[in-house]
Design a protein around this nucleic acid. Structure first.
Lengths: 128, 128
DNA sequence: ACAAGTAGTTCGGTAAATGATACTAGGTAT
DNA sequence: ATACCTAGTATCATTTACCGAACTACTTGT
């Protein structure tokens, strides 16, 4: 029983895997934008008081996030148009982060996820 | 300069890392439930026609998902109360998956994520 | 005796995300 | 001269998610 592998191509036009599925699911794409471990926390923090500096964000994450990760997550949010970064040519350096207009449209979505979680977790805890 | 490591504990009561932050962010918790690569796709597929069998789901994922991964994702969705699994004592085996009532409450949330993505991607493509 | 069908499990591997730690630059305060 | 401040980089290690391929159990059909 060596070559009984099922090769089932029905419905697959192009052999490059995952192309269709990965790009077809809108929610998967949303997760790519805000699915990072700290991103929603960061978006909320920047939304709550704007502008926010790098060090403030780090402290607001209770210093648990590393600088490297914080930099990465902020850069990705900037690349995806969610936040704006403004660096001032001072020393010590000062960098300010703000939500973009596009980023602000995320807030109601985040709130609806929070609302669902509240109802869900309440329901699950009652179940026991 | 060896021991200039900043040990900054302000605001941290308990030394166990991440406890506060990880559980405080509702959205992060939501991602734990539906953040798996195939979960939203599976939830949608099971919602669209119910009940759904294991093999049907695999085919609907265009056979790109492996059986191992499909099993894992389904088991987690079941553990989290989103879907119900019913196995029939037949041979060949038959297993049916359905959305639970709790799982059905996910549908509007998923739709709102899809709606946001549509607006977002439209806006981003116009920007260029 | 053997293959087919379903819903898995098992083993081994890889890539991506995140973490820990140390280091940097340029100006200000001591 | 040296230390401090901010906003990072650089390097390496670890964890987690997911993939590929093979194997399994049980019963019916040939």
């Amino acid at each position: 029983m060596k070559n009984n592998t099922i090769i089932d191509n029905e419905g697959i036009e192009n052999p490059e895997k995952l192309n269709l599925k990965e790009n077809n699911c809108a929610v998967t794409n949303v997760f790519k934008v805000i699915g990072g471990k700290w991103k929603v926390l960061l978006v909320n923090a920047i939304y709550n008081d704007c502008p926010k500096r790098f060090g403030e964000l780090k402290r607001e994450m209770e210093n648990v996030i590393t600088q490297a990760t914080l930099t990465t997550q902020l850069r990705e949010l900037e690349r995806d148009g969610i936040i704006c970064r403004k660096a001032y040519a001072e020393s010590p350096p000062r960098v300010e982060y703000k939500l973009s207009e596009l980023g602000k449209t995320l807030i109601p979505v985040i709130r609806s996820l929070e609302t669902w979680w509240d109802a869900y977790s309440k329901c699950v805890s009652e179940q026991k």
